[in-house]
Structures are given as structure tokens and as C-alpha cells.
Design a binder for these strands. Structure first.
Lengths: 105, 105
DNA sequence: CCAATCATTCGATCGTTGTCGAATTATCAT
DNA sequence: ATGATAATTCGACAACGATCGAATGATTGG
């Protein structure tokens, strides 16, 4: 049942797109929350943790940006979305980047 | 004689500002060229190396963004500007970030 | 089937940003 | 002084991006 939403292959990762995605504070808050748990998580839980004051359309938009940048994988399971950080893929292409951006505090 | 242009203190570094600065391909090209030489360099030389197809006002603008983000130090010496990466300061606040962004290619 | 739920898409707004040409400033060399 | 050189500032413009409310889509539970 669950289908993985469209995402870029590791080879087509684009540093400009990735850094633009990470440059937004809201998206970085989502990523930081996601980065803490290495397990796939219900995206709504992450939204609660991050506690941004943003509307649903905006949150959805941010998740899309993160996904299309290759930072996260998003799996549609029923009405829910299960998300996780693409750690290994990121590590392959840009080693140390996620740690440097999200690791500190 | 030479005067250092205004720049943020290490304490006031802002990751959003830094990532936004690094998200632009042109600025990243400048940074990559700068990152290679650890010595202060005439900024015009870097511009040649980077070989962007941009006007002088735009280059100047990009240098300003990098400086105001805390990524580079810019010293006015006569008509020239001597620039260098603020490696240690960046390493203090965001260890591994510059390496992750500029190191690979 | 119907209603509730979770997420996305659409359309609009509005601030931000990259870019340039022209004008300006500052400095150096003659 | 005068003119040449390096860089910045200014004013403009187009493109982009973050945001929202409303509408739509998809799925689950009764």
C-alpha cells in the first residue's frame, strides 16, 4: 500500500537546491526534529515537535521542498505521510553536511 | 592604510544567513576559489579564477553578502580589496560546514 | 455511502533577491 | 590637477519564494 513519493536519485543531488532548502529556518526546524530519530516517523508528529506557527499548506510546501532536494524520503501510507532523513544518500554525496548544519544545538 | 570592512562577530553568526549566502552558485564559486588559498588574496584575482559572467556591481554585491554573513573578511587597501575566508571563526561556530560545502565538489 | 480526517493543490499576495547600467567614491600614477 | 582604475552605491526590474485561505483529493471509520 505505501508508495514512496517522487524523489531525486543520489546522482542528481544539487548542492544549490540542498542549501536553499536548508537555508529556511522552518525547514531546518523540521529537519532537526527528523534528524533526532533515525526511524521513519509520522510527519505530523514532527510538525508538532517543531512547533512552527505555520498553516498546513505551508508545512506541506516545506516538506515538498525537502523531499525534492533529496533531504528526506516521504512515504504515503493511507492519509499519513511517513518521513525520514536520507542520511546515507546525503553522506554519500556531501559527507558531514547534515551533521554540520543540524548537529550543533 | 588598510581598514577592515564591517563584519559580524563570531557570536552573532546566523546559520540562516550563512546558508543563504552559500546557497548561491556564484557566491559558492567565489568561496571555493577563496577556500583554496589560505592566504589573503586580491579579490579581483578570485573573480578571475571563478570566471562568473557577472557585472562588477553584482560581484560587489556578492562579496558584501559573504562578508556580512561572516564567511569572509574584507580589507580595503587602496583601491584593492583583500579578502580571505574566516576559517577559524566558521570552524568555531559551525565545525565542518565549510569543508562539507566547499571541500568536495 | 457519508462524514470526518489528513494532506495537497490552486490562486493570490507580498516581501526578498539577483541582476544590470549609470552615477559615485576613493585611490593611484603622471 | 588630471585622468585612469577599482570598487561601491543607487535605482530599477524581473524572478523567486514564503505564506495563507479556499478548494480539492485521498483514505479511513461508521
Amino acid at each position: 500500500m505505501p508508495r514512496t513519493l517522487p524523489e531525486p536519485s543520489v546522482d542528481s543531488f544539487d548542492l544549490t537546491v540542498i542549501l536553499s532548502a536548508l537555508a529556511d529556518p522552518g525547514r531546518r526546524a523540521l529537519m532537526t526534529a527528523l534528524f533526532r530519530s533515525s526511524e521513519p516517523v509520522d510527519c505530523a508528529v514532527i510538525v508538532e515537535e517543531a512547533d512552527l506557527g505555520l498553516s498546513n499548506p505551508t508545512i506541506s510546501h516545506h516538506y515538498r521542498i525537502l523531499r525534492e532536494a533529496g533531504l528526506i524520503r516521504s512515504v504515503a501510507d493511507g492519509r499519513k505521510r511517513i518521513v525520514r532523513v536520507r542520511r546515507e544518500d546525503m553522506e554519500t554525496r556531501f559527507p558531514g553536511l547534515l551533521q554540520a548544519v543540524l548537529g550543533g544545538h
